[in-house]
């Protein structure tokens, strides 16, 4: 055995978990952090549930006013476990909005939005509006009476803005009224644009938390 051979480290099996642990330093959490400190993380859990149930629903959903409702009915009554996946998707969407609001209420109560965490708050407000838009666009997709009128009323709101309001509403509806074009637009926003934005802003939100650490309640 030569000298260089003996200096070689012993061969060990590649273990991925230690590798992750080395590159992701542990997040130090204050001892006084209670269960209310979990709302943000739980909102992330809801988001991942939304992603995987959403991908499953995409298999059968048709963004076409003639077939949207039938395709949702098909998922609920014909696809094995479809009723569960569809229901989890709708319920968990509502829970995600509720959790984001509860998270923000806690942050506001403890005044965690102050320096050095202003951008945490600002990105959080952006995430709240993105989550709300996610729910709003998703609500139209089953193309029921309720969702049609919800979209009509919702897209009416920007008309209160002077000068550009009507233009914004028309732009959102892709025309003067809620129609099949609105459905296509909302569908694209719901499955592609808004989730990508949420994932991006969430990533920044988490990096900020990593940099400053979790705030200690007074």
């Amino acid at each position: 055995m030569t000298d260089s051979e003996s200096k070689q480290p012993p061969k060990r099996p590649l273990r991925l978990l230690p590798l992750v642990k080395v590159h992701l330093p542990p997040l130090v959490v204050p001892r006084s952090l209670g269960w209310a400190g979990c709302f943000g993380g739980l909102a992330l859990v809801q988001f991942t549930i939304q992603i995987y149930t959403g991908i499953l629903l995409l298999i059968y959903y048709k963004a076409d006013p003639m077939r949207a409702w039938d395709s949702v009915t098909f998922i609920k009554s014909n696809v094995p476990m479809g009723w569960l996946i569809q229901r989890v998707h709708t319920v968990s969407a509502k829970m995600m909005i509720a959790l984001v609001l509860m998270h923000m209420a806690r942050v506001a109560y403890y005044r965690i939005y102050r320096h050095p965490r202003e951008w945490h708050w600002i990105s959080g407000v952006i995430l709240l509006s993105l989550t709300t838009f996610m729910g709003f666009t998703g609500y139209l997709l089953p193309w029921t009476n309720l969702s049609y009128w919800a979209a009509s009323v919702g897209t009416e709101i920007p008309t209160a803005v002077p000068v550009v309001g009507d233009g914004i509403a028309t732009w959102l509806r892709r025309g003067p009224n809620v129609s099949g074009e609105t459905l296509g637009f909302f569908f694209a926003m719901h499955v592609a644009v808004i989730p990508a934005l949420i994932a991006g802003v969430m990533g920044m939100h988490f990096i900020m938390i990593r940099r400053t650490g979790i705030s200690k309640p007074l």
Binding site: L56, I59, F74, N78, P80, M81, G82, I85
Partner: peptide
Amino acid sequence: YPVVAFLRLPKSL
């Protein structure tokens, strides 16, 4: 389980 079941072919298809 629900995910795997969802990916099964529906009877009507």
